[in-house]
Design a protein around this nucleic acid. Structure first.
Length: 423
RNA sequence: GGAGGAAUGGCAGAGCGGUUGAUUGCACCUGUCUUGAAAACAGGCGUAGGUGAUGAGCCUACCGGGGGUUCGAAUCCCUCUUCCUCCGCCA
């Protein structure tokens, strides 16, 4: 969430920056500032009354000590009257506070200066492309045919057990999945990320902290009896570790990683884009999360981008990196890079990672702060990225590496799979 | 699931209706002393909001969360959460 102080001081700038995200903030900002003024006025009046009442109550105490009961009674009723007045004001203050908060959370994060203008994915800026797109034989198959042919992922069985979008990995498919978990975690820990194994259900406070709640609750699976949510990404629990925490500056940067299954309802998305592994309700992912000093976050973002690039490169997959335009960015992000791999049989680019800097947007919600040089708490910056999301990596690997004699496992993974071919 | 007990500042631990934002110890910071360090001594050391110049100062709120009683609550009552002990069940 954006800090009210920023909006007070930089109204015009806030509006124009949000316009890059195609968000028309003018009216909302006006409402926010109006309520902010009203709220502060109420607060001042209420606090003045409280101060007076506190003074009177103290006098009651003093008089009681001196045994002047009659006089004390006088002050008692005076204090009671003050309290009555303050109560009404407090009621109003509470309402105004809530109203302000409810409006404030409607504002998306401000995009950084580098974010290109644009409305659709077509406006994203391609900043990098590497690897060669394999020329497949004419009879090359999409991954959902390959998985059936080699009996490594069973979509129908998943439908039987659970429903569409919950595939069952079998045999070498399951082993390959397990290899990816270990491979990506080993890579991440080797460059200094601490491995975390978090709960895969989270409460409302956590959902709010990283920005999934209140607005995107429909995208998460909700365990209603306990009011818990299945995580859509490990980002949620791993970042919420630092909710309500004031870090020492020497603790920064914090680098965490974690493997978890991820659950997404993906309500309303059907059709050919969701075929096979392209879009699932449950999938596996290794996530990297960092908490940094505000001055270091963009440097860190580039490091994370380069790290993710090494992962894709080592798997031998052709990929490209996009800087997302304002219209395609998430609500909470200030700058996002998407990684896409080319899935040669489907002949399309599939998103396999998203690396973002949230600046203080999540920190403000989380109350995640660090003590600066002067010992004062101020919000830290949070970042995260997929490193990587498995299903589409799997799809591209299966399709791009298919041969007459089977599917070739990338050399980097062989120590983890224990086999070179799926055949 | 049942029965008890507890939750106070970074940690430990007082306070159980009236200058208590909160005794004290440890940790931490500054100063004196010292060639330097330790020790000793002196002082400082929470968060948020408001006001003010994003200073000093002042005001308000916060002793697990929420609500209540009272002129006044960390202190009394209700409720929720978490932890501990005992019983039951169980991977």
């Amino acid at each position: 969430m954006i800090q009210i102080q920023y909006i007070r001081d930089n109204k015009a700038e806030a509006i124009s920056r949000l316009a890059v995200k195609n968000f028309n903030a003018a009216e909302l900002v006006e409402q926010i500032l109006a309520i902010d003024i009203a709220k502060r006025k109420t607060q001042q009046e209420s606090e003045a009354l409280s101060a007076e009442a506190n003074g009177v109550a103290k006098q009651v105490g003093d008089l009681m000590k001196q045994g002047k009961k009659t006089e004390a009674e006088e002050f008692k009723s005076k204090s009671a009257a003050l309290k009555e007045k303050a109560k009404t004001l407090d009621e109003l203050l509470k309402q105004e506070d809530e109203k302000l908060f409810n409006l404030l959370v409607l504002l998306p994060n401000l995009p950084s200066a580098k974010v290109p203008k644009g409305k659709t994915p077509a406006d994203n800026e391609k900043i990098h492309e590497e690897g060669t797109i394999p020329q497949l034989a004419a009879n090359a198959k999409p991954h959902w045919e390959l998985t059936a042919q080699y009996d490594i992922i069973d979509f129908e069985l998943g439908v039987k057990l659970t429903g569409a979008g919950f595939p069952v990995y079998k045999g070498k498919g399951a082993r390959l999945q397990r290899a990816l978990i270990n491979y990506f975690l080993d890579k991440a820990t080797a460059v200094g990320y601490k491995e975390i194994q978090p709960p895969i259900m989270i409460n409302r406070d956590s959902g709010f902290g990283t920005g999934q709640l209140p607005d995107k609750d429909g995208q998460m699976y909700h365990v209603t009896v306990d009011d818990l949510f299945l995580i859509p990404t490990a980002e949620v629990p791993i970042t919420n570790i630092y909710r309500d925490v004031i870090l020492k500056s020497e603790q920064l940067p914090i680098k965490n990683c974690g493997y978890t299954p991820c659950f997404r309802r993906e309500a309303g998305s059907y059709g050919k884009d969701v075929r096979g592994l392209n879009r699932l309700h449950q999938f596996d992912k290794v996530e990297i999360v960092q908490v940094t000093h505000p001055e270091k976050s963009y440097e860190t973002l580039e490091q994370m981008r380069e790290y993710v690039a090494t992962l894709v490169r080592d798997l031998g997959l052709p990929f490209r990196v996009l800087r997302l335009c304002g219209g395609d960015m998430s609500f909470a992000s200030a700058l996002t890079y998407d990684f896409e791999v080319y899935s040669a049989a489907q002949q399309k680019w599939l998103e396999i990672s998203s690396v973002s800097n949230f600046e203080t947007f999540q920190s403000n919600r989380l109350k995640l702060r660090f003590r600066d040089e002067n010992g004062k708490p101020q919000p830290a910056h949070t970042l995260n990225g997929s490193a990587l999301a498995f299903p589409r990596i799997m799809a591209a690997m299966l399709e791009n590496n298919q041969t007459e004699k089977g599917i070739k496992i990338p050399a980097a993974l062989v120590p983890y799979t224990g086999f070179e071919w799926i055949d």
